[in-house]
């Protein structure tokens, strides 16, 4: 693990940055800043990422960011195509990252449960240490009454959550989880999590908000601010350069063109 970088990042997160200073700095720094407060750090324990809609790109961005800053392999228990490689290759600055994520998909609640149960086998037989465990849309398979009676679905989901908590402790890694909707049935997922991050769709692009964290918005010139996925990709590429991960030629290394003006802001922030 690269300790220096990790502590850098912690530092960045602990300084909620909404200031004009950062934006001024950014304006000067055409190559995009490292340690910018776009992505929250994933600490050990369980982090729940909620979102207004399907949080595919946000989850993938957090995973890529984490892998850039840490050694090891991410183990991803997938449902409903969250691990789409089309999206991943769009955001990831390096195709090498594709090989640092191991995925197994559960297409039914039965398979999903089994993947969760068998995760230690996969981790223990893998040569590299686990860097992260990812399990999006945990509730996805456990709310279809045609497949499982409600009580059985609750039991299975409960067992899945208990196992993920145990893995977080046993492997001392961050476990990043998600849910498709926030309601009474998915409340146990939030209860199990050590912390929550919300990914909001704002008129200026997606933004992560947590108890101790908030994505700052970045200027794209002409008084516009945004945090689009294209911008994230550029940011991740900048991050990759800083940590020495080779960047693919096909990936844009310059800041992407500004999108259509969404809103004109008088000052940085919301």
């Amino acid at each position: 693990m690269n300790d220096t970088n990790v502590s850098d990042r912690r530092l960045a997160v602990s300084q909620p940055a909404s200031g004009a200073k950062r934006n001024r700095d950014l304006r000067r720094d055409a190559s995009l800043p490292d340690g910018a407060t776009v992505f929250p750090t994933l600490d050990a324990g369980v982090t729940l990422l909620d979102g207004d809609n399907r949080v595919v790109a946000p989850i993938q961005s957090l995973v890529i960011d984490h892998l850039l800053m840490n050694d090891g392999t991410a183990f991803w228990i997938d449902v409903h195509g969250y691990a789409t490689t089309t999206q991943f290759t769009r955001i990831a600055p390096s195709q090498q990252l594709l090989d640092r994520v191991k995925v197994a998909r559960g297409f039914t609640p039965f398979q999903h449960y089994s993947v969760v149960c068998d995760l230690p086998v996969a981790i223990d037989s893998h040569p590299d240490d686990p860097a992260l465990i990812v399990a999006p849309a945990l509730d996805a398979h456990y709310r279809n009454e045609d497949t499982l009676a409600t009580e059985q679905a609750e039991t299975l989901l409960g067992r899945v959550l208990a196992r993920l908590r145990r893995y977080a402790r046993a492997y001392d890694v961050p476990v990043l989880v998600g849910r498709t909707t926030s309601n009474l049935a998915t409340e146990p997922i939030a209860t199990m999590a050590d912390r929550q991050i919300h990914c909001e769709q704002t008129s200026m692009g997606p933004q992560f908000v947590g108890d101790e964290f908030e994505t700052t918005l970045y200027p794209v010139g002409d008084g516009l601010y945004q945090t689009t996925f294209a911008y994230w990709r550029a940011l991740l590429a900048a991050r990759a350069r800083r940590v020495g991960t080779p960047i693919d030629d096909s990936q844009p290394t310059v800041r992407p063109k500004a999108p259509k003006p969404l809103a004109t802001l008088q000052h940085g922030g919301r």
């Binding site: 991943f88 640092r100 995925v103 197994a104 039965f110 999903h112 993947v115």
Partner: peptide
């Protein structure tokens, strides 16, 4: 009755090729 057997873990690169 229900298939509990899941796919084995594979790298995202493999998944990319397979897709």
């Amino acid at each position: 009755n229900h298939s509990w057997r899941h796919e084995q873990f594979k790298s995202m690169g493999t998944l990319h090729n397979a897709d």
